[in-house]
Amino acid sequence: MLKIDHLSINYPGFNLQNVSFEVGTGEYFVLFGPTGSGKTVLFELITGLRRPEAGSIHINGRNLTRTDPACRRLGYVPQDLALIPFKTVWQNVAFGLYSRTFRPKTENRRQESREIDRRVNEILEKLKIGHLARRLPAYLSGGEKQRVALGRALVVQPDIMLLDEPLSALDEGTGNDLMREIKALHRQFGTTTLHICHRREEMLYLADRVAVMQDGAVIRIGNPDKV
């Protein structure tokens, strides 16, 4: 469970004011609002890439407000995807599994390597990008890159997934296909997910609940059809 409590940050030209909400375990929660309303800043606070001036962030009962980003156990897909350009699709997806936080717990190195292989190959097949495993990101389409970024975040089995406008750079057909796949993956993995979007159809299709943001504040929270 994620609990955001009176989170605030001010910097020149922008304020995030007293943002509070809770997201239940396994819930698909959408942050909805226009560009510049503070959704991405809120994500950067949750990931620890920015420090809040006030308020707190709890994940599964642990206060992570001052915790290093490396120890928060999150799966983050930023808007520009940020794939590592010199690593192949396989290496990009496996990258997190070699870190201290997400390294599989096994008895020896050989088992660990086997476990990483198994998990990466499984996620690549689920996202239908197994055939692209040896390609570099520069040779992928927008939809394929998006799948790689999703795979990289999912494979570490994070406590919370953070998706920052994952469909905004895709054409409508590809975006709709991926939207259905994201929903299916959420049903399958049951990972608590926060998703930023400003497309109404996307919000209505994906969200269990929605928080509407405007000018750095949450102005409404509720079920998507009522909000």
Binding site: T47, G48, L49, P69, A70, C71, R72, L74, G75, Y76, P78, D80, A82, L83, I84, P85, F95, G96, S99, R100, T101, F102, R103, R152, V156
Partner: peptide, 13 residues
Amino acid sequence: DPRVEMVARTLGY
């Protein structure tokens, strides 16, 4: 792109 480094931080590095 500093985002690549940011994502690497969230992936436990």
